[in-house]
Amino acid sequence: MVVEHAELSIVPGREKEFEEAFTRGHRAIAQAAGYRWARLVRQIENPGIYLLLVGWETLESHTVGFRESPLFQEWRGAVGEFFASAPVVTHYEAEPDLDHLD
């Protein structure tokens, strides 16, 4: 399994709107082949920064299957206007025992 780690910087004052839009955006991610689970957490020190973690079966499930599909456009359409800057995305290899997160 691969874990996508995305740091999202949100336009100041639009955090509540982003959280509401994330619910719609998550529906798109969850439909993607290879999707396993997702978690969104808000930073305490800077409440305009969020960490999005998404479990994928493989790296390609995210980078090709999702990002090159209409579902990615649906995701960005729901949340993209709230980004103060481009998300910083990295990937981590995870052990199968992390599957208990969802």
Rank of each mutant, 00 (worst) to 15 (best):
M1H: 04
V3Y: 11
H5E: 08
E7F: 14
L8N: 05
I10E: 01
R14H: 09
E15V: 14
E15W: 08
K16L: 13
K16V: 15
F18N: 09
A21H: 06
R24K: 10
G25D: 12
G25C: 13
H26L: 14
R27C: 10
A28I: 08
A28L: 08
A28F: 14
I29H: 07
A32N: 04
A32L: 06
A33G: 12
G34A: 02
Y35V: 01
Y35E: 00
W37I: 01
W37C: 05
R39N: 11
L40P: 00
Q43M: 09
I44V: 15
E45S: 09
E45D: 14
G48F: 02
I49C: 06
I49Y: 05
L51T: 14
L53T: 14
T58G: 00
H62A: 00
H62G: 00
T63D: 05
G65C: 05
R67E: 09
E68V: 03
S69C: 05
S69H: 08
S69K: 04
E74P: 07
E74C: 08
W75L: 10
W75K: 03
V79R: 02
F83N: 07
A84Q: 12
A86S: 11
A86C: 04
A86Q: 13
Y92E: 13
E93Q: 13
E95K: 10
L98H: 07
D99I: 05
H100R: 14
H100P: 01
L101P: 03
